[in-house]
Every structure is written in structure tokens, then in C-alpha cells.
């Protein structure tokens, strides 16, 4: 297995709750930070911060969903092994 493959396998071995807490933390921190930072600027300059906040929330949800994807991949591998 290549280095890259090993690194990928390591990430996929993590338990689901790690993805969940990391994803939730990214989403909450992103939303909170974007809100705080946006309020420091006048209205016409806030839009980029809201969009950045939304992008970070989506990134957090993506990380959270990776927990599901890793479980699905694992069960798929187990099924293939059992064939």
C-alpha cells in the first residue's frame, strides 16, 4: 500500500463519533465566527462573511457525513470479503 493509501485508510478507520464531533465543531465554530466577524463590518460588506460562514457550515456537515461514508465503505469491504 502506498503512503497516500495508508493515510486514507487511517482516516477511514476513525470511529463515527470523531467525524460527528469534528463536523459539528466546524459547523458551530464557523457559524459563530462568521456571525461575530460580520457584525464588525457595515452591512454592505457583510455578505462575504455570511457566504464564508455558510461554506464552513457545509464543510462541517460534509465532515459529519464522512462518518457515514466511512461506515458504508467498511461494511461494503466486509461484504466483499464474505463473498
Amino acid at each position: 500500500m502506498t503512503d497516500r493509501g495508508r493515510r486514507r485508510a487511517f482516516w477511514k478507520r476513525l470511529p463515527r463519533w470523531v467525524y460527528w464531533t469534528t463536523g459539528a465543531a466546524i459547523s458551530f465554530i464557523g457559524a459563530f465566527t462568521a456571525m461575530i466577524v460580520a457584525e464588525q463590518f457595515p452591512l454592505e460588506q457583510r455578505l462575504p462573511f455570511w457566504i464564508a460562514g455558510t461554506a464552513i457550515i457545509f464543510t462541517g456537515l460534509w465532515v459529519l457525513s464522512m462518518g457515514t461514508k466511512s461506515r458504508l465503505d467498511k461494511s461494503e469491504q466486509q461484504e466483499r470479503g464474505g463473498d
Partner: peptide, 9 residues
């Protein structure tokens, strides 16, 4: 997570 984070922002 989605509901809470989006309501926060």
C-alpha cells in the same frame, strides 16, 4: 447540527 448551526448564523 445543520439546524443549530444555520439558526446560529
Amino acid at each position: 447540527v445543520a439546524a443549530t448551526a444555520l439558526c446560529l448564523l
